[in-house]
Design a protein around this nucleic acid. Structure first.
Lengths: 258, 258
DNA sequence: CGCGTTGTTGAAGAGCTTCAAATCTGGTGG
DNA sequence: CCACCAGATTTGAAGCTCTTCAACAACGCG
């Protein structure tokens, strides 16, 4: 494992506050694994033994019931996932699947729990991380229950636009069928939702979306700070030496985070 | 404040593991307040200064957008709420409103955060509580995105039946329009959903629901341990001297918890 | 260049909401 | 004790949103 990888883990809000000693203890038995695209890392219902840290690639968290399935989150580096199951030493409630070739750092759940009981700074950081995840899900549920499909898409686009630098053009970060599942609709319906946003100045060509009448789009979308988190997850600030453009609430990698 | 009230707070998973000394510190400046039915305790977007503990009555957590509003959870004693906002010292994402006359114990958020940083046992308990809340929301989202309205209702009824003692008759704990909002539908649609469950042996008379063909209902509902939490929140075990009927996962007061 | 995957479009119908009106219910004052 | 009222619930009709299934177009990769 490269030293720079370990530094990226160290820079996560979850670990940045703890002492070097504690960090060494946490990562002592940990290891890095590479997975090809389309690998199922974890099936919902599986016992969770590790905390996962996505260092490179893309991971989708999904849930299934009867013959239906849906996407709960799409993660980009650097993000942790299934922390809640680790803390409770419980089965995972979501499946995790790579969408691209991915590098994942895996930390022992047992060590995480033991360290939390010994180090209050780390336990506090875990609480903050979980609280951020929780609030991400609250935002998701509100979006899902209060908005129509077109409204959810419009707000997703506005959020992406801000996160990608507030230009008049953005690039969709993953396949439209994944986006459709994330937004809680069918691919066909997403396609029609894009079509109906054309009358609000939105043009789609492949993965590129351009905005020509932002006021019209915002009038439809009515983004709200109580639903839409326009900040990127704090994790990404430190992921690629990017400058700190964002004065950020502790906003983590769950919900519409990416 | 009665001593038995303080004991009920003490018995919460969140506090039961800490020393008497730490508990005294946490509850030092805390106080009990009584609110009539229909009181708004907190508006979404408000700064949250206290951790709330519901000791008696009923509280609804809701979210609003444009002219729509929805219910995210209905809480019964003994439950904590808005812990995530307290941990992050952030604005609340949900409004809180009493549905009945309620007694609520309020603890200083500042003291909670300070104590977490000093006492790793308490910080660990907060993490467990938040992890349980998080998992409750994951269940809610999966139910919302993967099931139709009738399916959500059928599973809600099955969960309630188990929690109320697995008899062939249950009592709905609150108004149907609140239940409708919790399940993500209109009151009219809930009414029709009940009507369509009649063909599966479900009879409704006022707040009383009886089951005559449970197999038929379960065939439709297909409850899943990865969505439906059939255990009551651990909190309620200690709420009224009730016996410990449930070997329980740490399952807290959020989502379809009640 | 061909083929499989991904995305789009059309038609039909299921699921859900809205509005309006009728019915039921619990609580109140006489 | 009873009649009455306000709010809650149910029912009906209409229409909108979304899904499903099928067919077609576009894209990307070997």
């Amino acid at each position: 494992m490269r030293d720079t990888d370990l530094q990226r883990v160290r820079a996560l809000p979850l670990f940045s506050g703890v002492s070097s000693d504690v960090f060494r203890r946490l990562t002592g038995g940990a290891f890095l694994q590479r997975f090809p695209a389309g690998t199922t890392l974890l099936l919902e219902g599986d016992r969770v033994d590790f905390l996962y840290v996505l260092l490179d690639g893309t991971v989708e968290l999904q849930g299934a019931w009867k013959d239906r399935e849906t996407t709960l989150a799409v993660l980009r580096p650097v993000s942790t996932f299934i922390l809640a199951a680790v803390v409770l030493d419980a089965d995972g409630l979501m499946s995790a699947r790579t969408l691209q070739r991915s590098e994942i750092f895996m930390l022992s759940g047992e060590v995480i729990r033991r360290t939390m009981k010994e180090d209050s700074d780390f336990a506090f950081a875990v609480s903050q991380e979980l609280a951020g995840c929780y609030r991400g899900l609250v935002r998701s549920i509100k979006s899902q229950k209060l908005r129509t499909g077109v409204e959810r898409l419009a707000n997703y686009l506005i959020t992406q636009r801000i996160r990608q630098g507030a230009e008049d053009k953005i690039t969709l970060q993953y396949e439209k069928r994944v986006l459709a599942a994330l937004l809680g609709m069918t691919p066909e319906n997403l396609s029609r939702a894009f079509a109906s946003l054309a009358s609000h100045g939105v043009t789609v060509r492949g993965p590129t979306v351009t905005f020509s009448r932002l006021e019209a789009l915002e009038r439809l979308a009515r983004p709200s700070p109580l639903i839409d988190n326009h900040m990127p997850p704090q994790n990404r600030i430190t992921s690629k030496g990017e400058s700190e453009r964002w004065a950020s609430e502790v906003a983590r990698a769950v919900g519409y985070a990416h």
